[in-house]
Simulated assay, not measured.
Amino acid sequence: MRQAEHAPQAFQTAWNSHDMESLGALFHEDATFVNRFGHYVRGVAAIIEMHAPIHATIYSDSTLENELIDVVAIHDDAAVVHFWSRLTVGTAHPAGPHAVDTLILAVLTRKAGTWRIQALENVTLTNPRTGEAILRDSRGL
């Protein structure tokens, strides 16, 4: 990535290609990833290992649509990026076709002119009273 604000589109493109090597290339070798279920892994190999089986099965027909919220520069070579992400899954998912919205926080750093993700956390939007997943359109977000 040539700029930190390219992260949402790059993540979306890698996800939608279902090429986990491409997804892994967005991260620094020692990066951390917390998925929407709170599963924490460290390192590109572990990030790929976490995603490859679901892209071969329940997310094989999934797509992501990401939307940049903001970029907060914390140094010339470091930034925090927030973006909305809508995961749409198809018939490969046991629950059938549906959509899930999440909010992603990514910390990116630039080394040798290239921005990569150092840490990423993905949080599912839910109703705090019921735990039911909600779509951000229904909240006016």
Rank of each mutant, 00 (worst) to 15 (best):
G113R: 04
T91F: 03
A31D: 04
A133I: 14
E67S: 13
T126Q: 10
M50E: 04
I134R: 15
L103F: 05
G113P: 07
R116S: 10
N16T: 02
A99L: 02
L23P: 02
R136I: 09
A4E: 08
I69L: 13
H6A: 10
E49D: 14
T57H: 09
E49T: 12
L64K: 07
V81K: 03
N127K: 07
A46W: 00
V44S: 05
A25V: 02
S60A: 12
I69P: 03
F37P: 00
L125P: 10
E67N: 01
R110G: 03
W15K: 05
I69Y: 01
H75G: 15
T126H: 12
L64D: 11
L64G: 01
Y40I: 09
P53Y: 09
N16C: 04
R36Y: 08
A31M: 08
I48S: 03
S17L: 14
R110L: 07
L23H: 13
H18A: 14
M20P: 00
R129M: 12
R42H: 15
Q9T: 13
T57F: 00
A7K: 01
Y59S: 12
N66M: 03
F33Q: 06
F33P: 05
H51E: 11
D19S: 09
T88P: 00
N122V: 10
L23Q: 09
A10G: 05
E29L: 02
F83P: 00
D30N: 08
Y40N: 11
F37S: 04
V34C: 05
H18E: 06
A25L: 06
A119E: 11
D19H: 10
E65I: 12
F37Y: 12
D76G: 05
T130E: 03
I134V: 15
Y40P: 00
G90A: 01
Y40C: 07
A7M: 09
G113K: 04
L87F: 06
F27Y: 15
S60I: 05
H75P: 00
A46N: 11
